[in-house]
């Protein structure tokens, strides 16, 4: 076990190191911000390994798009294998799937929505959580990119939640009931209207912040790793002795952040949806 950890860490530091050298493989010159962003932003080509020329994706799909597909395929494979295992004692892939399902069920959906409503929504939130988690984590593999580090992806996810909030609210409370729900009880007329306005704006800002949070977290984390590595080229090659350990540390932190952000996104969307559809005071 110890041996394995050591070997993995050696490989990772090598990859990080070589990833750092590949930063300047194509430009060779000083455009730091350009090279930094090249490794985070969407594009049409993938740098698989330093020294190897970048691979241009077929059919004009962009890298983030490809990452989305890869993660969907990965999740489906995982759950297919998990669903095929019918034994009572979870083993291997099955236990991974069950850990995620139980986490979403017991820590997110049931505490927020209660058991009866939660059961209906469980599939949606499990898919949401697993999807975001996989997309977040897949970006940490060298040569892969984080699709959630693209604001279009996170906004698309937030928009789904946003429309679900409205749809569920309208369905459960009716259109007038939904807006009446925002009006606080026992407040004088003009102030109440102001509160309703604030709540209404809040509906939008909540979703915008939801998307921005995920985007910024994933984006900033990768930027931090890359910044440490870029410092090697800015300062001196010997700075790698400091930089690489810090980059590895940030990398490990990113694993935690990937999990945390997927959790937070799922928890917040669960709260928004359940708040919009339960009458005030319940």
């Amino acid at each position: 076990m110890k041996e394995l950890v050591r070997r993995v860490s050696v490989i990772f530091s090598f990859l990080l190191f070589s990833g750092g050298t590949s930063l300047f493989a194509e430009s060779g010159d000083v455009d730091i911000s350009g090279t930094l962003f090249h490794h985070i932003l969407n594009g049409r080509s993938v740098d698989l390994f330093p020294g190897v020329p970048a691979v241009t994706l077929p059919l004009g799909i962009s890298v983030h798009q490809a990452m989305l597909f890869v993660s969907v395929v990965l999740i489906l494979l995982l759950f297919l294998r998990a669903a095929r295992n019918k034994s009572m004692k979870p083993k291997g892939v099955r236990s991974i799937a069950e850990i995620m399902i139980l986490f979403v069920r017991d820590d997110i959906v049931y505490p927020v929505m209660g058991k009866e409503r939660g059961e209906k929504w469980l599939s949606f939130f499990i898919s949401l959580f697993v999807f975001l988690l996989t997309v977040n984590l897949i970006g940490l593999i060298p040569a892969f990119k984080t699709a959630t580090g693209n604001i279009n992806v996170t906004t698309a996810m937030a928009v789904i939640v946003f429309f679900l909030t409205f749809a569920v609210g309208f369905k459960e409370l009716g259109v007038p009931g939904f807006f009446k729900n925002m009006y606080p009880e026992g407040v004088a007329f003009p102030i109440g209207i102001f509160v309703v306005l604030l709540e209404f704006i809040g509906l939008f800002t909540k979703s915008i912040v939801l998307s921005l949070r995920l985007f910024a977290n994933m984006f900033a984390g990768h930027l931090a790793i890359l910044s440490f590595l870029v410092l090697i080229f800015v300062i001196s090659p010997f700075f790698s002795l400091v930089s690489v350990p810090f980059a590895v540390f940030t990398y490990v932190l990113e694993v935690l952040v990937a999990l945390l952000q997927a959790f937070v996104f799922t928890l917040l969307s669960c709260i928004f949806i359940s708040m919009a559809s339960t009458p005030e005071g319940e």
């Binding site: 969407n42 597909f69 999740i75 489906l76 949401l128 693209n150 698309a156």
Partner: peptide, 13 residues
């Protein structure tokens, strides 16, 4: 990309 996100998430879901 947004549309592809919807599509892939929708398919997955």
């Amino acid at each position: 990309l947004a549309i592809w996100t919807w599509l892939s998430f929708g398919l997955l879901f």
